[in-house]
Design a protein around this nucleic acid. Sequence first.
DNA 1: AAAGCTCTCAACCGCCACCCT
DNA 2: AAGGGTGGCGGTTGAGAGCTT
Length: 297
Amino acid sequence: MRKPVSNCSNNNMLRKGLWSPEEDERLMRYMLSNGQGCWSDIARNAGLQRCGKSCRLRWINYLRPDLKRGAFSPLEEELILHLHSILGNKWSQIAAHLPGRTDNEIKNFWNSTIKKRIKNSASTSPNQNTDSPEPREAMGGLIVPPRSHDLMAFCVDSLSTSSSSSSTMQAMAYNSRFDPVGLAFNAPNGLCVDFGVVVGDGCDPFVPPPLESMSLKGIINNNNNSSSGMVSSETYNNINNNNDYYKMNGNIGRNNNGEGDLGTGCHWGGENLRMGEWDLEELMRDISSFPLLDFQD
DNA sequence: AAAGCTCTCAACCGCCACCCT
DNA sequence: AAGGGTGGCGGTTGAGAGCTT
């Protein structure tokens, strides 16, 4: 006999399984106009036959506009390896250091790609224990000490591309990547450039949002009478006001002249710098304290 | 061509922590 | 203090796409 389960599972009226584009649009529309709140209320008010938990998961793992899609870059892989060696299977904490990536995504990536790679690597060096709960000892030579400038550049890159995972992620996601006159986050040649720092080709080229989220643009344009096709900062500020998740310092939106505030101001140097759970200083402290690291080139 | 296998990843499950009453 | 509701997390599952034989 099954144990009694949460109300998310025992309500026969609630839908389960894959989300339809219509459901996605409903949730997206609701979140954009009302912001985050009580998830069960959101499910109800958005007219979704889903439990709140399901809505939350769908939003976090798929609909959130700041999500970075596409394959993990080599630097991201490197970072995941290092963070896992420090944190273990704390996927949410690892994800907090990778703006635009979800814990689910990282967990999947680890369980498929990296685990397999570790296994293969371990099979060539039989002394390695591939299932060790202490990944630091199980990497089987996979830990490649990052070069400090690469990691730093990656961190800066992370700041700019998804920035502010907490914050204006949508503004950044759309403004920086859609706008040809915006900051050169992704240079035309595919290199990732941040304020003069060439990170290498590890950054993902812009990956268009899925069809479902493309409808977001329509929604936003309708709401703001935007002629540019960009998401206005007003929209995002509105979201920010309603949603702790989006709280930020400063305005990284786009003004009426098409100037991104971030681009001219580089506002992330202040003492209130906060990028959701992602903290550059702390990250670098973590990394620099990691015993296997060798920052020599 | 088709059957079987493998891989990926979205979604669910179950547990825990926290908050509110 | 107890109990219910909710959010968050890590582990697991299963559908479907892709690959191999």
